[in-house]
Design a binder for these strands. Sequence first.
DNA 1: CTTGAGAGCTTGAACGCTCAACTGTTGCTC
DNA 2: GAGCAACAGTTGAGCGTTCAAGCTCTCAAG
Lengths: 164, 164
Amino acid sequence: MATATSPQLLTAEEQATWRAFARSSRLLFTQLERDLSRDAGMAPGTYELLVILSESPARAMRMNELAEATLTSPSRITHAVERLVDLGWVERATCPSDRRGWLAVLTDAGQGALAATAPRLIEGLRAHLFDGLSKDDAAELRRICEAILARLPGGAAAGGCPGA
Amino acid sequence: MATATSPQLLTAEEQATWRAFARSSRLLFTQLERDLSRDAGMAPGTYELLVILSESPARAMRMNELAEATLTSPSRITHAVERLVDLGWVERATCPSDRRGWLAVLTDAGQGALAATAPRLIEGLRAHLFDGLSKDDAAELRRICEAILARLPGGAAAGGCPGA
DNA sequence: CTTGAGAGCTTGAACGCTCAACTGTTGCTC
DNA sequence: GAGCAACAGTTGAGCGTTCAAGCTCTCAAG
């Protein structure tokens, strides 16, 4: 029960690390998503889509790019964008360069919904995450998480890119 | 765009930290859950339930406790346990001390399913998480995540408990 | 006792994600 | 320029979670 180095088992240290990482991130995300749902009626993941679109040139992006940027599937993007269109937060436009493609364009209403929600999310982020961490802790956390990302399939686009 | 200290905004550092944390954990979890689903046909969260039950005295736990241990709702536990009963991995027993309560008991088949799956999960955990981290990095990650947990509502039961 | 507040758990509907087809377009090759 | 594989996106069914009731049981007070 002490210092097993078998590749089949985790050491007590590793297990504690894994559980702390899993629990803290899950608890933080569910807390923030719950706030977003209550305060703004946003389905999980909606906020992220609005942010990505708002940071894009012309507030527009192809479905494909949205899927990659959110690390999820094209199918999910189709469904999610459909809901956003119903809300009036996004409009669809044909893609000029490829007749297969579609653009999702953030509307003024969508931008407004994002602007109205952002302060609350940031408040939650401070309260639940950054207020408990020293600057060094936060920097360490960033460094370690980017190291994890670098080894994860599909995680390459996130960390060291100049556009971030 | 440089060093905003407004409480309404995140600094560039904070934003990068938040995004790295969010992306790395999300990507890691979805990867592991996908493996679990493919290799063992386990629905998301199933593995965690089996682990918790297997670590309990008599492999049994009340529904209520399962909900707390997994940081989720009683309703989810009811549905999830029902699926596990259908699989033959869990049996239900009446609670001797409280007629309102139910015990979920891990069966031998459930223990077997867990034992058959654990090596694969641990393999994935090593490949995607620990192999890229030095021992110091892992210890730092644990310390920081436990600090986050400590400030999160409901996160108290996780880190420093003797039973861990 | 009996009454009432609250705990423990369940139920069923609504909702979002996933997965496996499927449609239409592009671009390469012969 | 005809054929064909790969790409972009959609569709619909299946499934797990969430949320708001609802039911049974407990416990303490009168």
